[in-house]
Simulated scan of single mutants.
Amino acid sequence: MPSKSLRILIADEQHFNRMKIERLFNQLDYFRVAPVQSFEELLNLVEYGCAPFDLLVINAGLAHGKLDLLDFCLDNEQLAHALIFDGQCAQLPVIAACERHKVQVSHALLPDLATVQRLMAIVDRPRPLVGTVISVR
């Protein structure tokens, strides 16, 4: 069952792309989605936000070479996970979705439903209950 508290940030210049990606998350019952259209908006939300984002889904071309997007996602404590799509345009290597990687890079022009499902299986894993004692006899 999806966690209703996950915060998802979608960053793409194209309104149609942002809406299409947001609908993929909505199909999977994730509704706390914030779409932004510029890198400046992204920086404002990430740097000045009160709580970290659980996932950033970003078009690799959005940074326009202003910074190393891969390093930005890896080093930013306000981002728990990231998916960089259209990574070929920024000459980024493909990094497949797995639990060891905080950042995934896809060369696909847009993420599809299967990609989002695989990603959310990592991002929205069940967390163990804190303070629960289980006795085994």
Rank of each mutant, 00 (worst) to 15 (best):
residue 27 Q to R: 14
residue 52 P to I: 06
residue 72 F to W: 14
residue 82 A to C: 06
residue 97 A to M: 11
residue 74 L to V: 08
residue 68 D to P: 02
residue 42 L to C: 05
residue 86 D to H: 14
residue 51 A to Q: 14
residue 46 V to K: 09
residue 49 G to T: 05
residue 80 A to D: 10
residue 50 C to N: 12
residue 77 E to P: 05
residue 72 F to P: 04
residue 36 V to P: 02
residue 58 I to K: 00
residue 64 H to R: 15
residue 77 E to Y: 08
residue 89 C to N: 09
residue 32 R to I: 06
residue 39 F to L: 11
residue 71 D to C: 13
residue 68 D to W: 01
residue 57 V to F: 01
residue 52 P to V: 05
residue 91 Q to K: 14
residue 45 L to A: 01
residue 43 L to I: 15
residue 67 L to A: 00
residue 79 L to Q: 08
residue 65 G to E: 02
residue 65 G to A: 07
residue 73 C to R: 10
residue 31 F to W: 14
residue 41 E to R: 01
residue 57 V to H: 02
residue 61 G to S: 12
residue 46 V to G: 07
residue 28 L to Y: 10
residue 79 L to H: 07
residue 33 V to W: 03
residue 56 L to S: 05
residue 44 N to M: 13
residue 40 E to V: 14
residue 27 Q to Y: 13
residue 49 G to V: 03
residue 96 A to S: 12
residue 80 A to F: 09
residue 84 I to G: 00
residue 77 E to R: 11
residue 35 P to M: 09
residue 79 L to N: 07
residue 51 A to N: 12
residue 94 V to C: 05
residue 39 F to Q: 00
residue 73 C to E: 09
residue 83 L to M: 11
residue 75 D to W: 09
residue 34 A to N: 03
residue 93 P to W: 02
residue 90 A to V: 07
residue 51 A to Y: 14
residue 62 L to Q: 01
